[in-house]
Design a protein around this nucleic acid. Structure first.
Lengths: 201, 201
DNA sequence: CATCCTACTTACCGAACGGTAAGTGTCAAG
DNA sequence: CTTGACACTTACCGTTCGGTAAGTAGGATG
């Protein structure tokens, strides 16, 4: 087994970008995490932006794989929606760095010159809206309304994910553990209320 | 009326910090927005962190004022909760820069050496939980559960706020306008479902 | 008219940044 | 034994960063 420096660099870069953002992270810092010089990194990735782009691509691919898997474990749309969204929560807990980077991207891509036409979350988002519109009671509603409903759930998941470190330090460890345990329960409740009210009304 | 350079510098700093974050923004860039040299800025604010701290303080004070006003327009807790949260949405739309900075702070303060014990949102958050626990059906639930419920709503509001620029460019202008119009409606629905299910159960 | 404060300016500093150029050791192939 | 690709290294470059020091124009005060 070779050292796989490239992969390790990508992992280190993910940590750095997640913690300090694109501007705050430095390529020498990333390389330094592995005890390498920054030129070793520049050998593998010609420019800082290339490195960042690759980190972003990895994340977006993982997200897409996750969603396709969730959709293919198909059932009735109600269950599908719940599964995907709860899965997204689990995913955000398992890959906190990814979530941090995604939210940072949301904040930064306005100041950088990015298209945002091909936003990595876009296919994920639209697939999810399509699933939601398969639910009786939501199928005849406007795209924009269903979009909002779905986006609200995604938003609270991702926001909670990036809040966790701060909340941990705000309350003590075990108080936050209770919160973290209750979160998916209340998330599920929220989704079920939403589905129920759509079906009922 | 004097030029009030200091205030203008704070406003410019807010724009810069919101757009590029603490690391990405430069004091020379902030001063340059007003056609001043960076030493002019350093005359008013000894260090970059002082400038940032003051921006943060302004935001947190505005937020606290807003919340106290919302709470004092008291009614039954159900209405109070809805008013505050919908007000928070309006506030986040009126002050998008503030929201961007708050979310950035959420991401950054882990890497900087900040206490997070006295997080600017903490009093806001706990007041809100207290209000929520005044609602029949929620009063006997655990603090952590009510916290999660409240935090979910806050999360989806703030997440939507920071998403708006990206969403605008993702869809065309008028498609996003429909989304933006539907959002508070669906937000209200979400809150009412939540209150209703608490009271009902 | 001299003095002092305010609100800046230009000049300068060391450190860190992203990035280029050129060299070096290792190792497999011809 | 030589060649050449690979995976780095040290050396260097120009720019930008936050921050210090010293100077200065304008106005109020004595």
């Amino acid at each position: 087994m070779q050292p796989d420096t490239r992969g390790q660099l990508l992992a280190a870069a993910k940590r750095q970008f997640a913690a300090k953002g694109f501007y705050g992270a430095s390529i020498s810092g990333v390389a330094g995490e592995l005890g390498l010089s920054k030129q070793a990194l520049l050998y593998h990735f010609k420019r800082k932006e290339d490195l960042y782009a690759e980190v972003l691509q990895e994340i977006s691919e993982r997200l897409l794989r996750f969603m396709r898997a969730a959709v293919s474990r198909a059932d009735v749309p109600e269950r599908q929606l719940e599964d995907i969204l709860l899965g997204l929560y689990v995913s955000s807990r398992e890959n906190p760095l990814d979530t941090q980077i995604l939210v940072r991207e949301l904040l930064d891509n306005q100041s950088r010159a990015e298209t945002a036409k091909d936003w990595y979350l876009r296919p994920f988002l639209e697939e999810l809206v399509a699933v939601a519109r398969g639910i009786p009671g939501l199928e005849d509603r406007a795209f924009s309304a269903v979009f909002c409903i779905v986006y609200q759930v995604i938003g609270c998941i991702q926001y909670f994910a990036i809040s966790s470190p701060t909340l941990t330090r705000m309350y003590d460890e075990q108080a936050f553990e209770r919160i973290r345990d209750d979160f998916p329960v209340e998330l599920r409740n929220q989704i079920r209320r939403l589905v129920a009210s759509s079906g009922g009304a």
